[in-house]
Computed example of a mutant assay.
Amino acid sequence: MLYGIVAAATALLLAALLAALLRAPALRLRVLDRRRQGEVPLSGGVVAVLGLVDDVWRLRRRVLVAGTAVAAACVAPYGETGIGGGLLAAGWVVGVTFAFRGLDHADGLAGSAGVLTAFGVAACAAVEVMDGIAVLMSVLAAALTGFLLRDWHPARAALGACGSMSAGFVLAAGAVYTRAGFGVGESAGVLFALTAVVCADAVLVLLSRRLGGRAVLRSGPDHLAHRLRWLGLTVPGATVLLGAGAFSGVLVGVLAHAGWVGGDALWWVAGLALVAVFALSRVPVYADRRTVSPQARAPLRVRSG
Rank of each mutant, 00 (worst) to 15 (best):
R297V: 01
A15H: 00
V65W: 01
V198L: 12
A125D: 13
A8F: 09
L300A: 13
R28Y: 02
R301Q: 15
L159A: 07
H257D: 11
P154I: 11
R156H: 12
L21N: 00
G67W: 03
A238E: 06
R301G: 14
L242W: 06
A126F: 12
L217A: 12
P294W: 07
A90E: 10
V135R: 14
G183Q: 03
V139M: 11
L191A: 10
L50C: 04
A89Q: 09
G305V: 15
G259M: 04
R303P: 02
V65M: 07
A155F: 00
A15V: 00
G79E: 14
G160L: 05
V53W: 15
V121H: 11
W57G: 06
L224H: 06
A246F: 00
V197E: 11
L18H: 10
H223L: 05
V127F: 11
D54C: 08
A173V: 14
A167R: 02
H257E: 07
L207T: 15
V46Y: 08
G38S: 08
G44W: 14
V240P: 08
W92S: 12
L149V: 05
G183N: 02
V216I: 12
P77N: 08
F247A: 15
A90K: 10
L300Q: 14
L207P: 03
D55P: 02
A118D: 12
R297Q: 13
R289V: 14
G185A: 14
V184I: 14
I83C: 04
T291M: 06
R36Q: 10
G262H: 00
S304C: 05
R209D: 10
V252P: 05
A173G: 01
R62Q: 08
L59I: 01
V285W: 15
A122M: 00
R179W: 13
R218F: 04
H223F: 02
